[in-house]
Amino acid sequence: MTDIDTAEPLLVFDDVNLSFGSVKAVNGVSFAVQPKELFAIIGPNGAGKTSVFNVLSGVYRPQRGSVTLDGRQLVGMRPPKIAKLGMARTFQNIELFSNLTVLDNLMLGRHQHISYGALAAFAWVGPARRQEHRHRAVVEDIVDFLQLEQWRKMPVGLLPYGVQKRVELGRALAMEPKLLLLDEPVAGMNLEETEDMARFILDIRDELHIPMIMVEHDMGLVMDLADRILVVDFGTPIATGTPQEIQSNPDVIRAYLGGDHQTEAATDGPALTKEAAG
């Protein structure tokens, strides 16, 4: 934890404002993600968590504020450019290419690393052939890592939900990102699938050392895995801190449980874990 606090931040999200008409989806949110950190964003439904992700990946353009990755300003860049700088993400509602096989979906993650042009693609000789085979080998590593072997050649539309979530994670990993955004990685999963996914997230952190930002409603998972947590409500940041600090923060408890519970709940940190996880 100590090296996390002192290191130069990888991503700086500074005072970002995003509104749709009069609705302020993101209102002055600031945070910084350190290298190797697993950073979580939590908040009630409609708090603006996914909007933060959409700003990060360039889908939305904020009216004010700056987002820098490795010192490069991301605001105003188009999604493919941001992807090229090393930002990868998964989506809350699975956004896989459902007619393509697992392998093809993962190969699409490699898209920006494959450099041959359309003419070489027609002929399928020389660089095109070599690169396809090389990147297939990389993709097979990811298939190994996420234990997707048995589904390799299945169209992803036919796969069970939990596996689709895993394929989407694999597609993001195939991009070899500097920063990985996970939008509700265990939403709608049963206990077993959740535990599998938690294992994969820990593996990504420990073996691949890829820093992650995770949006998640499963408080048990967030409190167990995250290094630091940002809480947002109605687009406004409420608190940032370690899981212990967040659990005992009175403002956070008010946001989740309502104003009346302010005093009692403040002394009873773990209660938040149970209430919100259910």
Binding site: A83, K84, R89, L96, F97, L100, H111
Partner: peptide, 18 residues
């Protein structure tokens, strides 16, 4: 593959770098 990505999910395709 990029064609199919554009057809199936254009926003996701953009985020993947297409």
């Amino acid at each position: 593959r990029a064609f199919a990505a554009v057809r199936d999910r254009d926003i996701a395709a953009g985020v993947m770098g297409v």
